[in-house]
Nucleic acid binder design. Structure first.
Lengths: 168, 168
DNA sequence: TTTTATTTTCAATATATTTTGAAAATACAG
DNA sequence: CTGTATTTTCAAAATATATTGAAAATAAAA
């Protein structure tokens, strides 16, 4: 397997993994391509290498820039835009995690809080059981969230090792 | 908002969240319905309450039983199968996590290991950079995996609090 | 065994998501 | 300003995923 084939396999695997976790295949592949590339790439190069349309490339790049896990890079004397990936996995993984928490988890937690309030006064067995289930989910997610927030703000991957040691 | 409405909102919210994370909407809704129900439910009751077809209900239930997050429950004198949810969130969240790690993350890690080996000998700048990126992902995921494994085998939610304290 | 209830399967259908590509908008150079 | 390169938008087409429902299989009762 030569370098090119390895990179291709990386891109394909990354795209498939993204799909399984609710991330668009093209978006994941564009990130993988940029992760695997030493030099900045233009939209046209990305279109060529991944065999995707201009519209798709543009949308995927914009989303990755919004996530903060790839950057625009100006190349002097060239009118085109170029892109580079954030290569520090701790940085980009934390950005993806905090973005998904904020967009997908936090709204659900808001709903759970409402439901909990609305159920609090219900004295039926059914009501009490449901209240317990909702409370359990809330406190579990709250605990995980606090750990996630600490990691996100800390910005240091050694914290993972610290966590691991805390578990022995 | 009465209890029934609260439960319905819980089911809808859970279904939407599932979809965003690569879990089938019906599967997530069936789990939510059973979480919100004190007593065991039959396939017919689930079909009625969620307004889904028999085939869909059957497939969703089987998947949840496979995950180990709902259980079959026999009711004496009744020929139908009934189902109850595992209500301890720590238990079921760990089961989902380990199942997804095993099915989706571990194969990717296998591919990354192959790629790393194949790239090790490459002395080009490009090859060295790519090797670094792959190695970085590997060691990050390995660390997370070790933490996850500890949590999964531990089966005690107090560990989360312990973790949180370790981060102060 | 035969009948009836229940579960399972899966091809067909419906729905949701992704991708394309060309037109419109924008940005830059002369 | 005018012409050209580049980026953005978005309706239409393609693809992927989810759902249905009825037939086949299975299991229990008579």
């Amino acid at each position: 397997m030569d370098l090119q084939a390895s990179k291709q396999q990386f891109i394909d695997t990354w795209g498939a993994l993204g799909t399984e976790w609710g991330i668009n295949k093209s978006v994941a592949q564009v990130q993988a391509l940029l992760l695997a590339s030493t030099n900045p790439l233009s939209t046209d190069e990305i279109m060529d290498m991944l065999k995707i349309s201009r519209g798709n490339a543009n949308m995927s790049l914009r989303q990755l820039v919004d996530y903060g896990i790839i950057y625009k890079k100006v190349i002097a004397g060239d009118r085109k835009e170029y892109f580079v990936a954030e290569k520090d996995i701790f940085k980009w993984a934390m950005k993806i995690a905090s973005m998904r928490k904020q967009r997908e988890i936090d709204p659900v937690m808001g709903v759970l809080a409402d439901i909990r309030k609305a159920t609090e006064a219900d004295r039926s067995d059914d009501g009490k059981d449901f209240y317990e289930v909702v409370s359990g989910i809330q406190s579990f997610v709250d605990q995980l969230s606090k750990i996630a927030d600490k990691l996100i703000q800390s910005n240091r991957s050694e914290l993972l090792l610290k966590l691991l040691k805390a578990l022995i």
